[in-house]
Design a protein around this nucleic acid. Structure first.
Lengths: 198, 198
DNA sequence: AAAAAAATATACCAATTGGTATATTTTTTT
DNA sequence: AAAAAAATATACCAATTGGTATATTTTTTT
């Protein structure tokens, strides 16, 4: 069971994470934080060293949530190539899912932190690398299993897919139009079928 | 010739545009503006109604510059399909080019303005639509000229290419790695050759 | 139930925020 | 060169910023 203190910390993160994600670091003020949580500065600064640490924790919190969504989704199949199709399928609903958390943290904080907050930027980079490693591993598993052509450069394709997905997320959010998300996922499915498949 | 007043306005925009582009709207303060331009608030507010109008003008200024770069670049060929290859080629150097202006204004301001500044967001949307219309027109011209397959949906491909480019820009900036930009342009060139070409 | 420890609220701080009214300087028109 | 107009600088404003020291309240341990 959560102690009262642990509950408070969770409550702060859950409340504050979407705000930082939507507004960015500079545009989120401490009074936004206290207003949203219903707590005072004393409570916030008792739990987090400063605004930056809170923003980092909030980013990690949202990433964790979203990563667990996709992780459990691709568990639906054991087959590496099927897992790739499941990733494409997962992102078809990513707009409404990520909206719950105030948007895509990688895109939002990645752009926001660049030139502004090197600590946050570093956290974003680590997440991107982790995601790409996971996709690359799936592709490598697929090659080993004979499902995916041996000529495929796993890391290159992982980066390509990731880049396409981020582009689709940006376009979908900026234009408020799911066309980009859906169309890009179709494109990725075609890529899997026509380029990756052994 | 520019009058002194017009020169000042240009000077403000040229100095301030990269700052808004890098930092975003909220993270750019009026004192950043006065410090960088060497002018006082009186001069700034004499030329722009408020911070928002200045940010909008700065965004338009950067977009105009970048658009004129790409426009003159694709004039190198008359052929629609060659123009598409030239677009892909242009973006191979987009990282260093756009850095001069403080980054890609569409990406940076698009993400920054979302949930924050609806007027700025609207300007970004207009720019995106204009870019896509231009690409779609080139594709349609290519179809008419018999260079591009009649089965191609011009607008769909324009959006696809745009989305891939934005993804590559995001990844390149966030990871500070040109691989994404270069690889995506190769991918787009392959798309032109294998999917679009009649 | 009392004592100790931990968490939270309160009251404060200097610095900065975007913006304005007015004085001064510079530029343009006559 | 003088007068008018325009541009810019100065001096100010209330509100807000992130943060801290300390008082108070709540929770946990004994």
């Amino acid at each position: 069971m959560l102690t009262k203190a642990e509950y408070t910390k969770q409550h702060i993160l859950e409340t504050v994470a979407p705000i930082f994600n939507k507004n960015g670091y500079a545009a989120t003020s401490l009074s936004d934080v206290t207003k949203a949580t219903g707590l005072t500065k004393g409570a916030i600064y008792g739990n987090f060293k400063n605004k930056e640490e809170l923003a980092v924790a909030a980013f990690k919190h949202t990433v964790k949530k979203l990563m667990s969504h996709i992780s459990s989704y691709i568990e639906k199949s054991e087959s590496p190539i099927q897992k790739l199709y499941l990733i494409a399928d997962f992102y078809k609903n990513y707009y409404s899912l990520s909206k719950t958390y105030g948007g895509c943290p990688v895109l939002n904080i990645g752009v926001d932190a660049n030139n502004q907050n090197s600590e946050l930027l570093e956290k974003v980079r680590v997440v991107i690398e982790r995601i790409q490693d996971q996709v690359a591993t799936i592709i490598e598993d697929g090659i080993e299993a004979g499902e995916i052509s041996i000529e495929i450069n796993a890391m290159q394709y992982a980066k390509r897919i990731d880049s396409m997905i981020q582009g689709a997320i940006f376009m979908t959010y900026t234009m408020d139009d799911e066309f980009y998300m859906k169309d890009t996922m179709k494109q990725i499915e075609d890529m899997i079928t026509n380029e990756l498949k052994a």
